[in-house]
């Protein structure tokens, strides 16, 4: 079980957060996605069925690349 909080500059509204939630939750292993459009931070919890690399890749694919 891992938890990471990332800053995603592309977030501009609650709709973006919902889109990220919907897309990430499609990945098997993603347990929880929480985000705040104000701070543009998203906290993702996942287990061993997936990896940060996979999540990161998906975020880039859907045009919400995390900062760093």
């Amino acid at each position: 079980m891992n938890t990471t909080t990332v800053f995603i500059p592309n977030i501009s509204c609650q709709g973006c957060v919902r889109a990220i939630q919907a897309e990430l939750c499609d990945l098997a292993g993603v347990l929880k996605v929480e985000g705040d459009p104000q701070t543009r931070q998203v906290t993702i919890t996942w287990d061993e069925r997936t990896s940060w690399e996979a999540i990161r890749e998906r975020l880039i694919e859907i045009n919400y690349p995390p900062a760093h």
């Binding site: 592309n10 977030i11 501009s12 509204c13 609650q14 709709g15 973006c16 919902r18 889109a19 919907a22 897309e23 859907i62 045009n63 919400y64």
Partner: peptide, 8 residues
């Protein structure tokens, strides 16, 4: 509300 929404 934004261009990202439209893309989503």
């Amino acid at each position: 509300t934004c261009a990202n929404c439209a893309r989503a």
